[in-house]
Design a protein around this nucleic acid. Structure first.
Lengths: 219, 219
DNA sequence: TTATGATTAAAACGAACGTATGAATCATAA
DNA sequence: TTATGATTCATACGTTCGTTTTAATCATAA
C-alpha cells in the first residue's frame, strides 16, 4: 500500500482501459499494456493475478460508481414522485444520461471507458458476459420495474425490447466514434470532441424517447 | 474448380462465419476453423491466402447480395415515387428490414451472419473497418440522400446521427440474442427463435421510426 | 495410360502469447 | 542500522498462434 504500488496499479488500469477499448480483449497483449504503462511485464500478474482479472478490475473501477449513481438518482426521482410513477423521460435520463455524462468526467474514465463499455456489450467473451451480467443485474431490474410503472399501458415484453434497443443505440453511439466515419464523412467533423459530446446527449435522448414512446407494432 | 474445392471453400466459410460470430476475429484460431470444417489446417491459406482474407471473404459472400438488394429496393421505391420523396418508413424498411429478413434465409447466412455483422460493427479491427467502410460507402450515401429528401425539415446532421442510432439499435438487437439475457430473463424466453425474429422486425421498425421522427432536441 | 495441374495432407517454422520464478531493489519499522 | 515484507526486474517456461514447406493424392486431358 505504498505510493509506488498505487501508482503502478493505476498506470496498468489506465493503459488496459485504453488498449482494451482500442483493440478489444483478445487483441490486446500484456506486453502492450505493460509497455504503455511503463511497468514491468510481471506487474500485471503480481497486482491483478491474471489478464482476465485485470479486465474485470478495469470495469469494476468504473461500473461501481456508475451503478451506485444510477441507483441514487432513481431513488431520488422516486422519492420526489412520492408514490406516483416517475416520468419515462426522467428514467431514461437517469440511466442513459448518467452514463453519457460520465464521458465528460476524465476522472471516471471519460470517453475511453464509455467506448470500451459500448464495444464490450456486443463482443462479450464468456467470462466478461458473466461478469457484466452479475454487475448489472440489480440495477437493470430496478430500472425495468420503474419503466413498467411509468408505462402501464405498454406490454412489459415490449418495454424490455425497447430498453434493449435503447441500450444498443447508446452503445453504438458511444463505441462508434470511429465507425461513425463509416456513416458520415464531413457532416460532423466540424464539431470538436467535447462539443460533440455536449450535443450527443440531447440528440440521443430525443431519439431514445421517440423510440420508447413510439406506437406499438401491429403483428 | 472441382467439386472438392468448392466444397472445401464453403465448409471453411461456414465454419469461419459461425466461429467469428461466436468468439470474434481475434478469439478464433485457424485450428478451430479447420477443425470444425473438417479440412486440413493448410486449406485456409491455400484457398484464401490468410486469416484476414478469409474474414473479408466471409463478409463479402453475404454483403454483396445484401447491398445489391438494398440498392434494388431503393431503386424500386424511387421509381414508384416518381420524383416525389420516398416515405421515411419505406426507406427504413428497405435498409433495416432487408437486413433483418436476411436472418430468415439460411442460404444467406441467417441469424449467424447477422449476429456476426452486428458484433463486428462495434469491434472493428483496423483492417475490417477499412473493408466494411469500403463495402458500405456507396449504399450508405444513397440512403442518406433519400432520407435527406424525405425529411427536408430536419437538419442533415441530425438525420446522420439518427441513422447512426438506428444502426446501433439494430446491430445490438441482432448481435445480442445472448446479451439480451442480460436485460431480460424470462419475458422473452417463451418465444422460440423463428417466432422471435418474426416479431422482432415490426418491433424494431416501430422503435426506429419513433426515434427517427422524434421531436428535435433543444440545445 | 500416362502426364499435368489442382488439391490435400503431415509436419515444422519462428514469433508471440500468458504466466511463473528467483534474485534485486525498495520503503518502512524496530 | 538492520531486518522484513512489498515491489520491481530480467528471464525463462510451455503453449498456441498464423504461416510455410514438401510430399502425397486426386481429377482430368492427351
Amino acid at each position: 500500500m505504498e505510493v509506488r504500488t498505487v501508482d503502478t496499479r493505476q498506470r496498468i488500469l489506465d493503459a488496459g482501459e485504453r488498449l482494451f477499448m482500442a483493440h478489444g480483449y483478445e487483441g490486446t497483449s500484456m506486453r502492450q499494456i505493460t509497455g504503455e504503462a511503463g511497468v514491468n511485464l510481471a506487474a500485471v500478474n503480481y497486482h491483478f493475478g491474471s489478464k482476465e482479472s485485470l479486465m474485470q478490475e478495469v470495469f469494476r473501477r468504473r461500473l461501481d460508481w456508475l451503478n451506485e449513481e444510477r441507483m441514487r438518482v432513481l431513488d431520488e426521482l422516486e422519492a420526489e414522485a412520492d408514490g406516483q410513477p416517475v416520468k419515462p423521460s426522467a428514467i431514461v435520463d437517469a440511466f442513459f444520461g448518467t452514463l453519457l455524462r460520465m464521458a465528460g468526467d476524465e476522472n471516471r474514465g471519460g470517453m475511453t471507458f464509455l467506448r470500451l463499455l459500448g464495444r464490450t456489450l456486443t463482443e462479450p467473451s464468456e467470462f466478461i458476459r458473466a461478469f457484466l451480467a452479475h454487475e448489472y443485474q440489480v440495477v437493470m431490474d430496478r430500472y425495468k420495474e420503474a419503466l413498467f410503472r411509468a408505462l402501464p399501458e405498454v406490454p412489459k415484453a415490449e418495454i424490455v425490447w425497447r430498453f434493449h434497443f435503447m441500450l444498443g443505440a447508446t452503445s453504438y453511439a458511444i463505441a462508434g466514434t470511429d465507425a461513425l466515419r463509416l456513416v458520415t464523412d464531413w457532416q460532423i467533423e466540424a464539431e470538436d470532441s467535447t462539443d460533440r459530446l455536449d450535443r450527443l446527449v440531447p440528440r440521443l435522448m430525443s431519439f431514445l424517447l421517440g423510440g420508447l414512446r413510439a406506437p406499438l407494432p401491429q403483428f
